[in-house]
Design a protein around this nucleic acid. Structure first.
Lengths: 268, 268
DNA sequence: CGCTAGTTTTGGTCTGACCAATTTGGTCTG
DNA sequence: CAGACCAAATTGGTCAGACCAAAACTAGCG
């Protein structure tokens, strides 16, 4: 059930197929991929559909179409939006990807919180505090919890008055919601209230007193807690399941770039 | 000369035309735009070209195609990549856009520098320091200067080992290079060496001593200096030129979100 | 071996057509 | 008159086949 379209459109098929092939490493960077005619035949769709698919992938930044043929590109040249595709082309989100997304999230939006405290209106901050309270109130599922966290951050982003920031937040947040909503099978990681409560309270106070420094620090810690928690959860999860071909290739790319990204409490 | 394609491809025409229309406010959010057939006739291109263009715009996040028709979307739901389009659809980069991009740049990549100092290898940091030295060495054009700054930051991003960060940097940096290279007419803002030198030196020392805190702070100041300088330059520039229809609409959107974004030293 | 000329391939564009789903407009009913 | 309802027009989605110019490839020449 869920969001499973019975008939993925032809161009969607092209996109996902080619996307997986590229992300999976079957086409390396600068590799020329088959001609449109060949692809249309191989995938059983019209050439027009192939063209639309290629254009989509080009916009995503993983292929480059031009006279003489289309060639694959490395992820380093891709659009930020590619991160979402790194998820839905795999079963279990790769730990390294999640970790890096949340690292950026922690750094960027803690700065955002600082700006929001400095520039935001009283109404906006009050609204943020309400959402923060709602966040720690109930012990509901991690899905709803993430949703509320997203709304909370969104309010702060709006309060910061920076549209670019908003775009990045949307792009980053999308990954998780899309991922979590799509896969109800994955046990959403719950967050221990014992660690959340004090952080949330500290942040609340900082917002109330309009203390930029404290707010920034608290928010950073809050996200970092989520990050560490998620990474730990996914690590065990990923160890259980075999990784798909996509994750295998991409994960390596991420890992080759990153040294030890987190002191992942390799518990036991 | 420069990057002026004598014959913009048909689909490019569709994309730029529709993009300007939407960004210019001729189509507001949730507005249904003309049917593909109508557009193909009106723009004098094939429907296939219109479809490819629409798909591109959909990927950019400013239109949403579906059964029954395609409708425009607000920029708040768009991809980060549209920021580039905000520039090349206008003559002079809007001050608010540049300001917000550089604000994000300052915040995010100063954090990045911190991480790079913590995690980067000696070789990477050494390379960064070289690029930093090359940066302040000569008094060359602002174009080359920006280019070197970009390379410097890129090295630090790589040192941070965060691919997501790299993607954002690429997306943000692209705006300026693309913009500056495309328009040789705009006098590139020079940067007074008197303000750059001390900041660069401080950053250099921080990198040498692997002092995360200092490096982060110095880098933030460095970018902020660029930011303030650019904003001041563009303000006077923009006051001189009449703004195009795009900037008028988009600029409002950015400004409505942002309060006074910078203490733009209204040095009268 | 390098360079050029000819051939093939490939992307870019166009015409015209069909289907399924939505939208739309009007009609009929309560 | 309001609302349910049904049929026609519209629209996106897909397909087939074709043409052109530019790139890529190849063979032949110097």
């Amino acid at each position: 059930m869920s969001s499973a379209p019975s008939t993925p459109s032809a161009v969607d098929r092209v996109v996902s197929q080619l996307r997986d092939d590229i992300l999976g490493g079957r086409y390396r960077a600068t590799d020329r991929l088959p001609s449109e005619r060949e692809l249309s035949e191989k995938l059983g769709v019209n050439r027009g559909a192939v063209r639309e698919g290629l254009r989509t992938l080009a916009q995503l930044g993983i292929v480059e179409v031009g006279p003489g043929g289309a060639k694959a590109c490395g992820i380093q040249q891709a659009s930020l939006d590619i991160v979402a595709h790194l998820f839905d082309s795999d079963e279990v989100p790769d730990v390294a990807v999640v970790d890096q997304v949340m690292e950026v999230h922690a750094h960027l939006f803690s700065s955002c919180v600082r700006v929001a405290v400095l520039r935001g209106s009283d109404a906006q901050l009050a609204r943020a505090r309400e959402q923060l309270a709602a966040l720690k109130d109930e012990s509901l599922g991690a899905l709803a919890h993430f949703d509320r966290l997203h709304e909370f951050v969104n309010t702060l982003v709006e309060a910061s008055g920076n549209l670019v920031l908003q775009l990045i937040h949307r792009a980053l947040a999308l990954q998780f919601w899309q991922r979590l909503e799509a896969s109800g099978e994955i046990p959403p990681p719950p967050l221990p209230d014992s660690v959340l409560a004090p952080l949330a309270q500290g942040l609340d106070e900082a917002l109330a007193e309009r203390d930029p420094q404290a707010a920034q620090g608290c928010f950073f810690d809050l996200v970092s807690a989520h990050r560490e928690h998620a990474v730990r959860h996914l690590s065990s999860e990923q160890a259980r399941n075999l990784r798909s071909q996509v994750s295998e290739h991409i994960g390596q790319l991420f890992r080759s770039a990153a040294s030890t990204t987190l002191p992942t409490g390799r518990s036991r």
